[in-house]
């Protein structure tokens, strides 16, 4: 018998397509992604894009204002700083540090955080309790202060700043992973996998991890923006990257004394930090909305 279809079926899109569609609808997220790509390209191709070496000094062009002002020079789009270095080149090279360092930081924090969170989530009693208490204590110390203390002990400098910020970010991962595991463990599909005889490690990697990926991805984006701000803040306080390193926070702390003489050396690096962090947060918001099935109606 031939079945005549008078009424159309509604196709239900798959998970990825649905996510893709949701994300594309999020105008802010697309804008953030666009800026993030530009910054990424700038940092990867810094040697090609930047007209000068970030440390190169032009003694005849000290504190030259940006090109769009009356006193500006076309050779230096964003002007020069008090040592006659090209601000534009320094910002471009600085993006390498900001993006690269925070990527390393987030990677370290995520690995340790997920591991500890998984251990805490899959175990009970003393181990879970002590991990959670430890994380609570880390959270109780204001993040920057903790980083400062760690640096106070291991000494200032870029690598140490990375460890410090990474340690500060771990507790959030632990909490999210543990809470999600506890939540997922009670669901029927995990019970089914357990009845099939899956052990804990397999349960985590095969059944639970794919399902807690959405909150984890969101947390990564959050950690990313925190890392950028914290690294810049440490640089600003003189505890992170040391001058003449073109790290954005370090540039800011250097140009602080010239805020009235050369305000552009203060505003431009700050705008760079703000746009980068804002882009990441926009993308993070888009990811959260697109990954959250609650809003997917």
């Amino acid at each position: 018998m031939i079945e005549v279809k008078i009424y159309k079926d509604i196709p239900i899109p798959g998970r990825w397509r649905q996510f893709n569609r949701q994300f594309r609808q999020h105008k802010g997220a697309m804008l953030g992604l666009f800026f993030l790509l530009i910054i990424l390209i700038a940092s990867v191709f810094a040697p090609i894009i930047a007209p000068y070496d970030p440390a190169e000094q032009f003694p005849e062009f000290l504190r030259k204002p940006p090109a769009w002002t009356d006193d500006g020079n076309r050779e230096f789009i964003f002007g020069t700083d008090d040592l006659g270095r090209d601000v534009f080149s320094r910002i471009i090279y600085g993006s390498q540090l900001s993006l690269g360092l925070s990527a390393v930081v987030v990677f370290i924090a995520a690995i340790f955080g997920i591991l500890l969170g998984a251990i805490a989530g899959l175990s009970r009693g003393f181990i879970e309790f002590s991990i959670l208490r430890l994380m609570d204590i880390i959270l109780a110390v204001p993040s920057l202060l903790l980083a400062i203390v760690i640096i106070a002990i291991i000494g200032p400098g870029l690598p140490n700043a990375i460890y410090a910020v990474a340690i500060v970010l771990i507790p959030h991962f632990v909490r999210i992973v543990r809470a999600s595991i506890k939540e997922e463990m009670n669901k029927d599909y995990v019970v089914a996998a357990r009845l099939d005889g899956a052990n804990k490690a397999r349960l985590f990697t095969h059944s639970i991890l794919p399902n807690i990926l959405p909150p984890l991805i969101v947390q990564v984006s959050l950690a990313f923006s925190t890392a950028i701000i914290d690294i810049a803040a440490l640089g600003f306080l003189g505890l992170g990257a040391q001058p003449p390193n073109p790290e954005w926070g370090t540039i800011l702390s250097q140009s602080r004394d010239y805020i009235q003489l050369a305000p552009w050396t203060v505003t431009i690096p700050g705008v760079a930090i703000l746009i980068t962090v804002l882009s990441i947060n926009l993308v993070g918001d888009g990811l959260r909305d697109a990954l959250d099935p609650k809003d997917g109606s």
Binding site: I229, A233, L252, V266, L274, N281, L282
Partner: peptide, 20 residues
Amino acid sequence: SSSLIGYSMPIFWWGMLLIL
């Protein structure tokens, strides 16, 4: 949008900007 900007603000720079 303003809360997103506020949330992304590097406050050490924000402070300098307001002083300026």
